[in-house]
Amino acid sequence: MANRADKRSFSTIRPISISQSLLSRDGSASFSFGKTKVLCSVNGPAEVKLRDEKLDKATIDVVVRPLVGTPGTKDKTHEYILRSAFESVIQSGLHPRTQIQIVSQVMMDDGSIIAAAINATTMALIDAGIPMKDIVAAVSCVINKEDQILLDPTAQEMENVKSIHTFAFDKSSSSLLFCESLGLFTDDQYFNCYELCNVAAGRIFEEIRGAITNKLQEYQGYQTEL
């Protein structure tokens, strides 16, 4: 099996790095897959504009900002994806007549940007203490011209491929929360991609747990030392 440009095997994801509480908002986090990096901030539950107010639940407002320029059609699609993935896990009924604002800023786009944005949003929501019944992790993969499945593709690997797939899973049941596939592919290929991404999502959950544990230990250190 030939290796990829960055010496990874086909079924490994790039190194993950997570940092939290970077901004002076209620919650913020940055998530990166190798060079791809997304910074996400969450504000809320906060006061909501009267016209957006929902009587029985919180209004979830998502803004995706590209690296340069103003948001375009692609960013609006990403906003829709993020909103649909997180509306099912955020317990918005616990904070009626409020707004939870999620702002996702692309810092560097080197492929798998939707997956990175979903993971960054999960971390920022956790940091803000927004009640959620589960957490979400997403991974992308591509099927190239040689019918090989490449997990977590870079921008270069995403060019000239047969199809691109992005899957988002929840933690407790590892069931599918969101999926987007572009291109031509067969049933078998689709389910192979699904399996591969499901395993990779498990690794991301481990990383998330590690990051949260580290941060909490840091805080607890103020109290338990001595």
């Binding site: 407790s172 998330i208 909490l216 230990q217």
Partner: peptide
């Protein structure tokens, strides 16, 4: 030892 929990943990 610390018992760290994440959303969704039973």
């Amino acid at each position: 030892e610390l018992k760290v929990v994440l959303p969704g943990d039973p």
